[in-house]
Design a protein around this nucleic acid. Sequence first.
DNA 1: TTGACAAGTAGGAAAGTTCCTACGTATAAT
DNA 2: ATTATACGTAGGAACTTTCCTACTTGTCAA
Lengths: 108, 108
Amino acid sequence: MNDPIDTVLAALANPTRRELLRLLRDEGQQPVQQLANHFTMQRPSISEHLKVLRDVGLVSEHKQGRQRYYYLEGAMFREVQEWLTPYERFWKDRIANLEILLAEEHHD
Amino acid sequence: MNDPIDTVLAALANPTRRELLRLLRDEGQQPVQQLANHFTMQRPSISEHLKVLRDVGLVSEHKQGRQRYYYLEGAMFREVQEWLTPYERFWKDRIANLEILLAEEHHD
DNA sequence: TTGACAAGTAGGAAAGTTCCTACGTATAAT
DNA sequence: ATTATACGTAGGAACTTTCCTACTTGTCAA
């Protein structure tokens, strides 16, 4: 399955990979070892998880000396957001929708 | 892993299950056979996928005669939305943010 | 009440995922 | 030049997922 939403959701369906994304989000770009320090898992496994994230376009990396700095790549999160949009009417409940409608009328 | 975001993303990381959700979203509640008609996969496998979706709270079901009508359950989509929120600043690019800022200033 | 239909469950084959340790390769430090 | 460091890759063990066919249970129709 080459569909981007499929590969992205598959990549996100793992707590280690989500924690890697959170670290890159909250602490900015960093090399593999520094990321690996946050886990009990061995470094090569972290490298494999980073490869999955790279392959689906959720992160990128640039080499500096013998280190590879990984950083978040925003575009693919948008894919998830867009996949989610048509479901919004199911979780935005009546009260929330009412508030939106009222607000819109208010500044017409 | 009992974390709801983990089980929900795992459930969403499968194209058959996402297609089931889309069908329930676009065509409303329906019994298992009617759902299964959209797939080449056998009906018991569809039942299994529906069980996964039920267990994570993405769908519910009610019995009517010998049929079970499945329908979307909105709350869990919200979980995904909320997980996504802190990443928004990475995919909402500068131009989009600028537009938002301008719009906000406009009706102050 | 017997047969047919709707749906779930059981058990298992095949494939995929996730982790490990051992090893290869490129760069930096001595 | 040699050694140490940062990282990736290879191969494989353990576990999970996804699908199948066969079977069970509950409900409706004749």
